[in-house]
Design a protein around this nucleic acid. Structure first.
Lengths: 239, 239
DNA sequence: GTCTATAACCGGATAGAC
DNA sequence: GTCTATCCGGTTATAGAC
C-alpha cells in the first residue's frame, strides 16, 4: 500500500537479499511447524534474528510470505515435473505425471494449505490465482501445460491448441481445490480423482480433434472465450 | 473456545433476541456500506448501540456475523425461489430459475462477497460450505434442489435421484465461485454461464435415464460416491 | 441465570529515529 | 537497511446489573 523504498524485488540479488532469505526460511519453517495462524510475525522475526520492523521491510504483510511460498512450491513442481516428462510422449501420461507431481510436491504443505489458500477465493486478495500478483506464477504454470502438450504426440487443431494450456491449468486449479479439502491418507481421493478424470479429459480433447465435431468444438471454445474475456476471470486486479 | 453461559442459541426467541438482531443488522449494514475489513467490531457495537463486550456476547467472532449473513442470504434465496417455481414443471427451467434467483438475491452482497467467502476455501474455517457449522444451511440448500427435482416432470432412476440433489448443489457452488470473481456489469458473465451450462447439465441428466446408458451411469455414480465418501468432502469438521 | 459494560491482551501493521 | 516505539482492532477477562 504505502511507498516502499525501491522494492527489494522478487528475484534480484541485492545487499540484503540474504536477510530476505533468512526471514522467508524462518517463516516457512514456523508455518510447517505450527501452522499459519499460530505463527506470529514476531516469532518469524525472532527466528530469523531480525527485528519485527525489519521483517516488514522485506515482506509488506504476513500474506506476502504466502506468496513467496507459492513461488517456491511452483518451482518444486517444475523440478519434479521436468524429470518425469523427459522420456514420455503420451499426452495422457504426461498430464497424469504433471498432476501427480503437483500433489507430491504439495504434500508437505497440506497441513496448513487451507490457511494458505484461504484468500484464494477472495478476488481482492493478491493471493487469488487470477490476481495480478499471482500473474508470474500463473503464467509459468500455464506454460508448463504448454510444454506438456507440445512435448507430446498430441496435435490438436489450432483453435483448441490456443486455449488448451489455460484450460488444463484451470483443471489443475480444480484438482487443487479438491486436494485442499481432501483429508484422506496420502491424499488418496485426490489421486483417485486424477486417475479417473484425466482419461476423460484427454479423451474429450482427442475427440475435439475429429473434423466431424468441429462445429461443436468451435461452439464450446466460443463459450469459453466469452466466459473468460471481458471481466470475469480476466486476470485483472479483481481477478 | 471458552465456556459460554447457555449459548444464546441460533434461533431461540429469548429476552435479548432483540439485541442480537440489532447487532446483526448493524453489522450487515456496515459491511454493505464499507466492506468487511473496514468494519470494526467497535463500529458494529456503536452502530447497534451496545458495548463491544456485548456484541461479543451474541457473536463469538466477527466471522460468526458472516455465518449469520449466509443464513439470511439463503433465506432470501428460498423466498425468491418459491414464487418462481410455483407454476413451473419443466426441470430445466426450474434449475434456471433457481440459479438466477441465487444470483439475484446475492447481488447486493457482491461487493464484499470476496471477503465473506475468503474462508470458503479453508477446510478449517467454519465458513467453508462443507463444514459442520455450515451444515444447516448446506442441508437446506440441498433440500431446495430436491424440491426442484421433485416438483418437476423429471423422473430419474433411483440411484441417480439419490445423488442428484447434492450434485446440483455442488454445481451451484461452482457457479457461485465463478460469480465471486465475476466483475462484469449485472454479473452478465455468470448469467451467461448459467444459461449455457444448465441445458448441458439437464441434457446429461436426461441421457442418464436412458436404460442403454445404465452401465455408464452406474460407473459415474460409483466414482462420485468414491470421491465423496470417506474423507474428502465428507462434511466433517475438516470438510 | 441472563445480560451488559469496562479494561486489558495480543498480534498485525506503521512511523520514524538511527 | 535496521531498529524501537506505537497504533489499531479482534478477542478475552471479568465485574457487576437486571
Amino acid at each position: 500500500m504505502s511507498a516502499k523504498p525501491a522494492s527489494p524485488g522478487r528475484k534480484k540479488a541485492g545487499k540484503g537479499e540474504e536477510t530476505r532469505a533468512k526471514i522467508l526460511e524462518a517463516a516457512l519453517a514456523l508455518f510447517m511447524e505450527r501452522g499459519f495462524e499460530q505463527t506470529t510475525m514476531r516469532a518469524v522475526a525472532e527466528e530469523a534474528g531480525v527485528s519485527l520492523g525489519n521483517a516488514y521491510y522485506y515482506f509488506e504483510s504476513k500474506e506476502e510470505l504466502v506468496q513467496a511460498f507459492y513461488e517456491r512450491s511452483h518451482e518444486e513442481h517444475l523440478a519434479a515435473t521436468a524429470s518425469r516428462l523427459e522420456a514420455e510422449r503420451d499426452f495422457r501420461k504426461r498430464v497424469l505425471a504433471t498432476l501427480h507431481a503437483k500433489i507430491d510436491t504439495s504434500e508437505p504443505y497440506h497441513r496448513f494449505s487451507g490457511v494458505l489458500f484461504r484468500s484464494a477465493a477472495d478476488p481482492h486478495s493478491p493471493l487469488n490465482p487470477f490476481s495480478d500478483a499471482s500473474r508470474a506464477v500463473r503464467e509459468e504454470a500455464v506454460q508448463l501445460m504448454e510444454r506438456v502438450i507440445d512435448g507430446s504426440s498430441l496435435d490438436p487443431p489450432a483453435d483448441l491448441r490456443r486455449e488448451l494450456p489455460y484450460l488444463l491449468w484451470l483443471y489443475e486449479m480444480g484438482v487443487i481445490l479438491f486436494w485442499i479439502f481432501d483429508t484422506s491418507r496420502g491424499r488418496g481421493r485426490t489421486r483417485h480423482l486424477i486417475d479417473r478424470t484425466v482419461p476423460i479429459v484427454t479423451r474429450l480433447i482427442s475427440l475435439g480433434g475429429n473434423p466431424i465435431l468441429a462445429p461443436l468444438r468451435k461452439a464450446v471454445l466460443k463459450l469459453i472465450r466469452e466466459l473468460r474475456d471481458g471481466d470475469a476471470f480476466a486476470g485483472g486486479d479483481a481477478g
